[in-house]
């Protein structure tokens, strides 16, 4: 038994090390002067990190970072709000064409985003907001997957009797939604929030087609342009990549437990 546990532990440690080494190397290499990266031992950090950061900060990095942050936070907040409202409505209310609506939500998940992008660009252009950050935020709000997920979560986590009781006690619909329904699906909300943040932070396709001004750069576009701007300054490129990865790592570290709980909720029949 002990050997089995030890083997498992060794295996898990090994897999963790394999997974973490690229991240560690990215950070470690970002502390080197470019010419030294492949001459020294990249496992031991050097002392050039600040210089590399200076190079990065002298470019459009801060603005790109801020843009990505605004997009991701807005996408995360409003997407969770809209999706959870959709999930609540689909579970709590009875209305005509509810089944059709449900099928429609499922269908939106089956259409690749690339197919809808041209139509979306036309829509944004007609709204005259295509040269702003808004198209990169709006695209995440009506998420078919998010709505479907919230519908499933409410179905398994929110007893309708609770809603009825609250109504009898005089709570209005917003109070029921915010104070009773949402706390019931907390793991689902956290998971969706994390995923929306990650997806919008890493999104490349939408910024690629919508960013036509330097002040609208996002991190993925900035990172891609690093290779051209700092062609052989790998230290600076890696410093930029390290900084770009930090928010994702922090958010995932803090929310990993909830995320896994949310992903696995309903996997085991209780």
């Amino acid at each position: 038994m002990k050997i089995k546990t030890a083997c498992k532990t060794v295996f898990l440690v090994l897999m963790s090390v394999i997974s973490l080494i690229p991240f560690y190397l990215m950070f470690s290499m970002s502390t080197f002067k470019s010419e030294m990266i492949f001459q020294g031992n990249p496992l031991i950090p050097s002392n050039y990190f600040i210089e590399n950061l200076k190079t990065i900060f002298a470019s459009n990095f801060v603005r790109s970072y801020l843009n990505s942050f605004i997009i991701s936070v807005c996408a995360m907040f409003f997407s969770v709000l809209i999706c959870s409202m959709a999930g609540y409505a689909m579970n709590v209310y009875q209305f005509r064409l509810k089944k059709v609506m449900n099928m429609f939500i499922m269908m939106t998940m089956m259409v690749p985003t690339q197919i809808g992008i041209i139509g979306y660009m036309i829509e944004m252009r007609n709204l005259r907001i295509n040269n702003t950050l808004l198209p990169m935020i709006f695209v995440w709000l009506a998420s078919g997957l998010g709505a479907y997920w919230m519908i499933s979560f409410f179905k398994t986590s929110l007893p309708l009797e609770l809603v009825e009781s609250a109504r009898i006690d005089g709570a209005n619909e917003l109070q029921i939604y915010f104070q009773i329904a949402l706390p019931c699906i907390r793991p689902g909300i956290l998971t969706l929030a994390l995923l929306q943040f990650l997806w919008s932070w890493n999104s490349y396709m939408y910024p690629l087609v919508f960013v036509n001004k330097t002040e609208n750069y996002t991190i993925p576009i900035f990172v891609k342009s690093l290779a051209s701007a700092f062609r052989t300054d790998y230290g600076a490129q890696l410093a930029g990549l390290t900084l770009a990865t930090i928010p994702v790592l922090i958010i995932f570290s803090f929310g990993a437990k909830s995320m896994i709980r949310g992903l696995t909720a309903g996997a085991v029949k209780g």
Binding site: I118, I122, R125, L208, V211, S225, A227, S228
Partner: peptide, 20 residues
């Protein structure tokens, strides 16, 4: 606007198709 050469056709095609 920095656009990598491998992305140029995609970006222009999308802009053309959407009338941007």
């Amino acid at each position: 606007i920095a656009t990598e050469w491998g992305d140029m056709l995609t970006k222009v095609q999308q802009a053309l198709a959407s009338g941007s």
